[in-house]
Simulated scan of single mutants.
Amino acid sequence: MTSDSIAAQPIRRFVALGDSQTEGIGDPDGRGGHRGWADRLADRLAGGYPRLAYANLAVRGRRAAEIRAEQLAPALALEPDLATVVAGMNDVIRPRFDQETVVADIDAMFAALTAAGARVVTFTFPDIGGIAPIIRPLSARVRAINARMRELARRPGVTLVDFEPVAATIDPRVWAEDRLHLSPLGHDLVSRAVADTLGLPGTEGDWRLPLPPLRRDLPELVAAELRWVAFHMAPWIGRRLRGVSSGTGLTPKRPDLLPVVD
């Protein structure tokens, strides 16, 4: 489906499914919660569709199978015109990664949502080895699942935003200090990318452009790596060993379709 055909059809109900990135972690809203690219996209959509209603079912820490089990049925009940499905990264970074099962869960969500009449938008992932060099061995997994996402996006009604080749997506400034979540700048980049791919009026392709050069000397880089390992990677490993998810006990921040309010 082309971006022109998407933009030509009115969008009245937008539902976002996913994990922490879609929930908006890394982008504080100033009220103790999180904004994120999906909220930012809803604001952009509301500029062209004032009656837009928006729900965000995403919960941090969820894997693809959990997103399918917990969020797909509620999403279908909301009868969206537009749905975003971003899933799989929490699977990729786990020691045990079953790509075929993850792809099957994602494809099942695409099939159900498009069969219900929704237009689905999904992503490829940036190279996490470029974001955190210490986990560069996982880059092959990212490339492999991105290749499968491009195949899944051939399904009628599914549109892909291909972030993998975009240099700006591995710039440290678009990532929060934990390198797992986008920074406010990163969430803004993603919202602009989706808006551009949807062909919304007033959007441009500047999200594909690299950011101005960032100069850091070697001692600064080493200190940043040590800080990240101590304050972010080690606690993450500890949670995995205990079988604890950051999203345990949490529910979606916006489970119902509500008018978009700036």
Rank of each mutant, 00 (worst) to 15 (best):
R40T: 00
A38D: 04
A64M: 04
G36P: 02
D29Y: 09
Q21E: 13
R60S: 15
V92R: 09
A55Q: 05
I11W: 07
V92L: 06
A65P: 07
A46I: 02
D43G: 11
A65K: 15
T84K: 07
A73E: 15
R51D: 14
G88D: 14
E66K: 03
L76C: 01
A75R: 14
F14W: 05
R31C: 06
A73C: 04
A64E: 05
L78F: 06
R35Y: 09
P50L: 07
G88F: 15
D19R: 07
P28H: 02
R60G: 13
G18Y: 14
L76D: 05
L52C: 07
E23V: 00
A8V: 01
A58D: 06
G47N: 09
E23Y: 05
Y49K: 06
L78I: 01
L76H: 06
A38I: 00
E66T: 01
R63P: 03
A75Q: 12
E79G: 12
G30W: 09
P28G: 02
P80Q: 11
G48R: 15
Y54T: 02
G33V: 00
G30I: 03
T84R: 04
A58L: 06
V59C: 10
A64S: 11
V59Y: 13
R51T: 03
I25N: 09
D27Q: 10
I67K: 06
L82W: 13
I25Y: 15
D29I: 02
A75S: 09
A75C: 10
E70W: 11
R68E: 14
Y49T: 07
G24V: 00
A87Q: 10
R35A: 09
D81G: 03
L76Y: 05
R63K: 13
L76M: 04
R31W: 10
R60N: 14
Q71Y: 05
N90I: 00
Q21I: 11
A64Y: 04
L41V: 01
E79M: 08
R63I: 01
A38K: 05
W37C: 00
I93M: 14
V85K: 10
A69H: 10
D43R: 14
A8C: 04
G36T: 01
G47V: 01
A87Y: 10
G33S: 08
D19V: 02
A64K: 05
L41C: 01
R12P: 05
A77H: 09
P74S: 01
A65T: 09
A8K: 12
P28M: 02
P10N: 07
Y49Q: 15
D43A: 13
A75E: 11
A73H: 14
P80G: 11
L57W: 11
A7N: 04
M89P: 03
A73K: 12
A58P: 08
G24K: 00
S20T: 02
R40M: 03
G61D: 04
G18T: 07
G24M: 00
V92Q: 06
E79H: 15
A46V: 03
D29V: 01
G33N: 08
G88W: 14
D27R: 09
D39V: 03
A8Q: 11
P74I: 00
Y54H: 12
A64V: 02
E79D: 15
R13V: 00
A64P: 05
A87P: 05
Y54E: 05
R12W: 10
